[in-house]
Amino acid sequence: MRLSTIPLMVSALLAATAAMAENPHAGHDPHADHTPMQAGEAAQGHSLFHLDAEWRTEKGESFRLDALAGRPTIITMIYGSCTTACPVLVNDARRIDRAAPEAIRERLQVVVVSFDPARDTPERMADYADDYDVDPKRWRFLHGDPADIRTLAAMLGVRYRDNGDGTFDHSNVVTLLDARGRIAERNEGLARPVEPIVQALRNLQDGRQAAGMTAW
């Protein structure tokens, strides 16, 4: 295990403690996910949808992360001119997408966010998307503001550095978000087995069915 995953685990523990303190029933409920959303922040406390940023898709359309609400999402961060790790990361997301059971896959969303707003224009992201031959209805390639990119990376636990020469050093992480934008699983590294995230997707779906909710 990488050391850098430890803070996230600590974070999850703290979050669980905080949620239990604020909602005395949360600890008794294995499917706290489906408790009716209350005004308090505990239910959605760790949702990435709190990031109120406007992105641009590869089609040039405005996009906000909360548009992902209601369905699970695979998200990763790359830069388009990267020829080393990034194609592997996008391919890892595609491998997960292809390995998911069909009923899940047709509801699964995949988001690829660029570190490089200067070069990865929506037009260039569109070319990039074409290269990968992925379902354009479920995949989004996002271009954003540098400060928002930095925030999203922090929320995902992705470290990166702009080397100033068109290259970026960055961590390689593929993250699964649940339907409320909370991190459900992280896959750190390149060309890792897809099964942990695929299993986490199944667990999310099972949780919804056990709660009497419709599939996504």
Binding site: L3, S4, A85, A154, D169
Partner: peptide, 18 residues
């Protein structure tokens, strides 16, 4: 600071936490 999460090498293989 803005970029407090210093990256020292490719990926997280080299990390001050180690």
């Amino acid at each position: 600071v803005e970029d407090f999460q210093l990256v020292l090498g490719r990926g997280d293989d080299i990390d001050l936490l180690t």
